[in-house]
């Protein structure tokens, strides 16, 4: 597991710039855009708190999910959700998120960040490596982790899936719900099996996104909150003393 949490040789006790400008700026823009996307998406959903499959779905049509089954009536949900606010901010921050993401990805490819730090290597994807990493993660705070200056195999895998699979799927399931995009790109309706299927997948993706954020924040706290957050703001990361 030595390769999981590499320590820069001879750098013990000193500090280094862990995250580049680009990663830091894009990260915090993402926090703002992601926060608005989540909040505005919940507003839009609350105004029609049911999910369906296929092309058709409306009140009274067989639903996959009804918020009213979970204790919040249609009217109560509607009173909480403001779809006008939600639509305005959802589409605005979707653009912020998209442009920010394109800048990040273009820069990361150009600077070798994707191959160098982000994508897991073949050996890291081996079941034994992933299993060992998982065991390590579940054991809780560990000195090795606090000192890590590279991403672990599970971390690389989850970031890569997030950026190159999850975000595009969320984008496309969002676009498939828009009549103009569905007219321009009819395949959007075909790949997801209809507007309501796309909406349902978009909502399921929202739950995944929340889970990702929660796990991400917990991991940061466990791996040395102050040092980690500072490294994402100023870039500066202090390498802990051996055996801390």
């Amino acid at each position: 597991m030595g390769m999981t949490f590499e320590r820069s040789p001879g750098a013990v006790g000193s500090s280094l710039v862990l995250h580049s400008y680009n990663v830091r700026i894009c990260h915090w823009i993402n926090v703002i855009a992601g926060g608005y996307l989540l909040l505005s998406g919940i507003h839009i959903f609350l105004d029609f708190p049911e999910l369906y499959w296929g092309h058709t779905g409306y009140q009274g049509y067989p639903a996959l999910f009804k918020l009213s089954d979970w204790g919040l009536s249609w009217d109560e949900a509607g009173a909480l959700g403001n779809r006008m606010w939600g639509r305005n901010y959802h589409f605005t921050f979707a653009w912020v998120f998209l442009i920010n993401g394109l800048v990040y990805v273009a820069w990361s490819f150009a600077r070798g960040h994707v191959r160098g730090r982000l994508l897991p290597g073949r050996s890291e994807l081996a079941p034994a490596s992933l299993k060992a990493d998982l065991v390590e993660q579940l054991r809780g705070p560990a000195p090795k982790r606090a000192a890590a200056t590279t991403y672990g195999p599970l971390q690389k895998l989850s970031y890569s899936l997030l950026i190159f699979v999850f975000v595009p799927v969320m984008l496309l399931t969002g676009l498939a719900q828009a009549p103009a995009f569905a007219a321009a790109w009819p395949w959007l309706l075909d790949i997801f099996g209809g507007r309501q299927s796309a909406r349902t997948l978009h909502a399921a993706g929202t739950v995944l996104f929340v889970v990702f954020v929660l796990v991400h924040v917990v991991e940061v706290l466990l791996a040395g909150a102050v040092n980690r957050v500072r490294s994402m703001i100023t870039g500066k990361f202090r390498l802990p003393e051996e055996g801390m």
């Binding site: 092309h55 058709t56 305005n88 901010y89 589409f91 605005t92 979707a94 653009w95 912020v96 828009a178 009549p179 103009a180 995009f181 569905a182 007219a183 321009a184 790109w185 009819p186 309706l189």
Partner: peptide, 30 residues
């Protein structure tokens, strides 16, 4: 920002629909 996003959304979709595609038409059974 909202106004900027409005313009981006409208010009992007209209550019993609430059050849005036039809919205999908379905079967009676649908």
């Amino acid at each position: 920002l909202i106004g900027a996003a409005d313009v981006l959304t409208m010009s992007t979709t209209r550019w993609l629909m430059a050849d005036q595609p039809l919205a999908r038409e379905y079967e009676r059974s649908d």
